[in-house]
Structures are given as C-alpha cells and as structure tokens.
Design a protein around this nucleic acid. Structure first.
Lengths: 259, 259
DNA sequence: GCTGTCCATGCAAGATAGTGCAAGTTAAGG
DNA sequence: CCTTAACTTGCACTATCTTGCATGGACAGC
C-alpha cells in the first residue's frame, strides 16, 4: 500500500472515529507501528491531525463526514446512475451540478462521453463543487463555471450569499441534484440549509431538474428541504427501488429511470 | 505512440482512477517506467497532476501538501519567498491570493504556520485559484472564499464578470499577487488580460498589496498590466535580486523583502 | 535522396526515500 | 519510585528515482 493511499485511509478512519490509535491503525493497514507513528507525525506537521500519545485525534471540528468517506459505498450503483444521468444531457447544453459523490460521478461520466470529446464548448458545466470543477478543469472541451462562495469546512461545496449572487446571473438547461433524501411528500433534501439553498436556486435557474439518488435515499427525509417532488422532472436511481415507490413518484409527475 | 497521445492517455487514466502508478502506467502504455516518470514530472510542472513517490494523483482531490515533490525549477526559492509572504499576514486577517505557483506555495506556507492552527477562523482566504481553494478546503481553521467565474482552460484560475461581481462585494486586509513580470515603470503584469483584470480588482479591494515574485521576474514586462508599481506596498523576492533594482523599487515606495 | 542535428526514448548505474526491526529513551500511572 | 507502554533513533533492506549515455526516428538543409 502506497503512502498516499495509506494517508488517505488514515484520515478517513480518523474522521470517521474521531480518534485513532497507533497499534490499531498499524494492524488495520498491515504496516508496522513505526510507520504509523511516522505518518502521524508528518500529518500533524501538515496540521491534518493532532498527535496524542498512543494515537491521534481530528483537528478542529468537523460537522459532517468528508466526502471521501462515502466514496466506497454503493460505488458501482453510483457509477451506473451517473452514466444514466450523463446520457440525459445533450451536447452544447449548460448543465448544473450540485456537490456530492453522486454528482461527482456524473461529472466523470460526462467527461468520458465520446460525443463530448470536442466542441466549443461541448458542454457548459455550472457547479458549486470544488472537486468537480478541479476534475473537469483539465478538459478544454468543457466550459466550467464555478459559483463563488464560502467553502464548507471538510467538504468541497461552496455556499452562501456570494454563490447566490452568481447563480442569479445565469440560467441552465438542466440541473442535476445530488441529495441525501428524496420523498414524494417531503421533496428533496440535504443535510445543510446553506447547501439546500444553493441547490434550490440551481433548480430554479434550470429548465429541467434531475435528481440522482440511489434507492436507499428514497422515501427518507432530511433536515434541509431543497424543493418539492413536483419540481423534479426526472429521478435516476438504481434498480433496487421498489415498484410502489416508482408508482408514487410517477403519479407526482416525476419520471423515474432505474438502472 | 506520440508524446501528446501518451500525455492525453495518462491524464485520462488519472482522472478516471484518481491515482496512477508508474509501473502500471508503463505497462499499459507499453513504454519504459523512465519515460512515465519523465512524463509525470513534466505534467506536474504544468500543474496537471501531483507527483507522489511511485506514481501520481489528480490535482485537487488528495491531501497533497506533503506530497510536494518537485513542483518546479525554482522550487526552493519559491518556498522561501512563500514563507516570507506568509509571515507578513496576521492572524484573523482576510488575505487575497491570486493564482500561480508562487501563491500556491504561499497558501501551503500559511497552512503550516503553527499560530494559525486554530481560531474561528484563524484566517480568511479569498482566491480565484481552484487549486488553492481545494488544498485549503480540508482545513477547518481557514475560511475559504472563492470568487466564482469561468475556469481558464489549462489553468486553475477563475476569471470573467462573475468573478468581478463577487470580488466587488468583499474587501480584504492584504492581497498577494503572483505575477509573471514586475517592473518599476511598467508595474505588475500577467500573461492574460482576464487574469490581470481579476488581479487588479483584488488589489483594489485590499488594504495592503504584496507582490511575490522571484528575481527573474523583476525588470521584465508582460502583456497584461495589473497595476502600477506605486500601488504595491511590498515586494517579496529572492536574494539574487541586484541592489540597483532594490533601490529603484524602494524609491518608488515599494518595500523590498529579499530572502 | 542523403546527411547532419535534434529530441525522445530506453537502459543501466549510482543515489535516495520509505519501511521494518531493534535497542535505548521518555512519559504516564500507580 | 517502579512498571509499563509508547516513543525515538539508528541501521539495513528494498523499491523507486535520477542521471548519463547510446540508440533511433523525424525533420531540415544540401
């Protein structure tokens, strides 16, 4: 296991548990305690964690698990969903992407679409997610527009009034929402109200609205509401969704794509 | 396989997988590991990826500060300059950073300052550089504000009227400019006029203006002017600068720090 | 068409960094 | 003060990297 992968794993475990012991980490990552100590020391030097005797603790307060923690879960479903979402976008369109692991996969899927390999621009991508912008910025065929704003701690999303201001100056053909919950009666929702506000604005500025969510998110509710189910044109989810749920969404006017 | 094609393939594999190993890439592209190493080094110099021992990772999604490997030719001067610039910033201030390799080093130096390890926030960083925002976003002690705008292809800087709009809504204590040329009579300049416009606005919104530039940039001129030398409070450069140049800048009211 | 130059590539030898192990040192808790 | 666990340091081994050199193909000029 390479050092950067090990550091990534260490930081993920650390954020997940809040505290990590040298011996335990050494056992889990199958390296010697000496290596873990050296890793901890170097990461502490970079202010990525705080060293304690016997282990390390997270640096500062993290309000939510970082994006990276979630990357492994439901990976293949997310990629299938992302592919399907990407196929709903036509060349030359302006597409808005919110933050989140699913929308990040959508961005990657868009980058891989062969019919978008050229054009000027082949696609305009509007996003408030730093990581998405970073990944797509190297592709000259895409025009990347980033909302400004304040980066949420431990996350890659830009929020706040500055972001609102930018979004109010543009419109899009299609908005893709990554959500933590989506229910027919309660609508789409996020963990954070600032994030929800941006997502809401993104929807309002777009002609079509797509929600990308694996089936575990459906029927759930979360703290910060983004918009009503009726505002959503298409839901793309995985095939584990049950028929009853599909029927209810369809009745609410939401087209359901299950892959 | 031509070098262009190989670089293209390498970057695509990298974006797809997030991480690429030298040996593996060499096998897949059927070239020698030495070639892949050279490719990685050259691509890292252009900020297209971040070099690690044994491979490379995409720029922006990893905890890459310690992975700083061999970023550029004037690496150690840049780091010394960056350290000196970072020391000119007081805790709690709002600091603006433009894009560029030197300012990226300034961001890293700020992250390593032990007296900025905590606070709420310890520092507010305003930038139009995607890579700087990505690197600092994982640090809860910093408040990161990103100007919106359009990402310049092949670069990580946000430019355009959307960025102007955001900047006009905020003010800063200090602005740090990374420039390609700085001369007493011609002022500070950048390669690109859109970039220069953002940098100019950043200066105007800041109480103090610091230019960070190694001595090879001094006395030169470039296409897009940012501002006059008189608008700059402090120039931080390396000790290879000649005395005559220092005297001229000092006479123009620019404090010179040579490290 | 021929030839010299330039540059990318591969190869190999020397240099370096990362890791594990072990011995000695320091800190925490009774 | 004593015990124990954790840490530091030094060393050896391995994988990786760097550098110098030779090869070969591309291209320009003759």
């Amino acid at each position: 296991m390479s050092r950067d992968a090990r550091w990534k794993a260490l930081l993920e475990l650390l954020v997940e548990r809040g505290r990590l012991e040298v011996e335990q980490a050494a056992a889990e990552l199958e390296v010697s305690p000496a290596t873990i100590r050296r890793d901890f020391d170097q990461l502490a030097e970079q202010q990525m964690l705080v060293r304690t005797r016997g282990g390390a603790v997270v640096h500062g307060v993290s309000y939510e698990l970082p994006l990276r923690y979630k990357t492994a879960r439901h990976a293949s479903e997310k990629q299938r969903i992302a592919k399907a979402v990407a196929d709903l976008v036509a060349p030359g369109e302006a597409v808005g992407l919110t933050g989140g692991t699913t929308t990040t996969e959508v961005a990657r899927a868009l980058a891989l679409r062969p019919d978008l390999a050229s054009g000027s621009p082949a696609l305009t991508v509007v996003t408030n997610a730093l990581n998405i912008a970073s990944e797509l910025a190297v592709r000259p065929q895409f025009k990347i527009v980033l909302t400004g704003g304040v980066a949420r701690p431990q996350s890659y999303e830009l929020v706040g009034p500055l972001a609102d201001g930018v979004l109010s100056q543009i419109t899009m053909d299609v908005a893709v929402l990554g959500v933590v919950a989506f229910d027919v009666t309660h609508g789409a929702a996020a963990h954070d109200e600032a994030e929800a506000a941006i997502n809401r604005l993104l929807c309002e500025r777009a002609e079509r609205v797509i929600v990308a969510a694996d089936s575990s998110k459906l029927g759930r509710r979360a703290f910060a509401r983004i918009c009503a189910a009726e505002s959503v044109d298409t839901l793309v989810t995985d095939s584990a969704v049950d028929e009853e749920t599909v029927r209810r969404f369809t009745e609410a006017g939401v087209g359901v794509v299950a892959v």
